[in-house]
Amino acid sequence: MTTFADSLKKEIARVARKELREEIAALRKTSVTQRSEIAALKKQVKAVEAQVNKFGKAKGRTQAVRTAPASDLSDTPIQTKGKPGRKVVFTAERLKVQRARLGFTQEQMAKLLEVSSLSIWKWESGGSAPRASRVPQIMQRLALGKREAESLVAA
């Protein structure tokens, strides 16, 4: 009797697998098309984000140029985006991040900021900090775009 029960269980499992195979194939096909659609949508989102960032940076540069000429920046503290009364603080980490963003060596960054490369090294390592009178000029130069910074270094 045991062999009959085992045979019956095996036959039922085989028939169930056979019926499910067609349904699973349809689900797999749907899943593949959905995954490819998701990948295409991710690419589109990435492209749109890149355009938004590009336009946002261009807009930010034009507003900064219009609202605060270079001669006025030396006298006033630099403020964060639209938050009055908050000064931007110079940090070694910010300098490292900006140098990496620009793709500059320490020598190129030194030329951009009009200091020695040893000063850049000391500032990045946290061994020292720039003079308070130089911080606004340094922060202004760090806020430049890559092309503007490269043109200043080349000049």
Rank of each mutant, 00 (worst) to 15 (best):
A13L: 08
A5H: 04
K57E: 15
A68S: 13
R99F: 01
M1A: 08
K43L: 06
Q51S: 12
E49Q: 15
W123N: 03
S36M: 10
E93L: 10
T3F: 00
E49H: 08
K18A: 11
S116W: 02
V153Y: 00
G82D: 13
R131Q: 10
K87M: 07
K59Q: 13
S128F: 00
V115S: 02
R28H: 12
L118N: 09
V45L: 08
V45F: 01
R141S: 05
K81V: 10
A100L: 07
L118K: 11
P84M: 10
V89K: 14
R86N: 11
T105L: 04
R141Q: 07
A47Q: 14
V45M: 04
L102F: 11
R141I: 06
G60K: 15
G103K: 09
S128G: 01
L144F: 02
F55R: 14
P136L: 05
I78D: 04
S133R: 12
G126D: 07
T33A: 10
A64N: 13
K146N: 05
R141K: 10
V52F: 01
R28N: 13
M139W: 00
L144S: 03
V65T: 15
E124K: 05
L41D: 09
P136S: 09
K57Q: 13
L27C: 05
A47T: 15
K122H: 08
Q108D: 11
S151G: 01
W121K: 14
S116M: 03
S119I: 03
R66G: 05
A154I: 05
F55M: 13
M139Y: 01
A40C: 03
P69N: 15
E11R: 11
P84E: 13
M1N: 07
E148D: 13
D72H: 12
V115W: 00
K42P: 00
R17W: 05
A16C: 04
E22S: 11
Q106M: 11
R28W: 05
G126C: 02
Q140V: 08
V88S: 06
Q44A: 07
L152Y: 02
M139H: 04
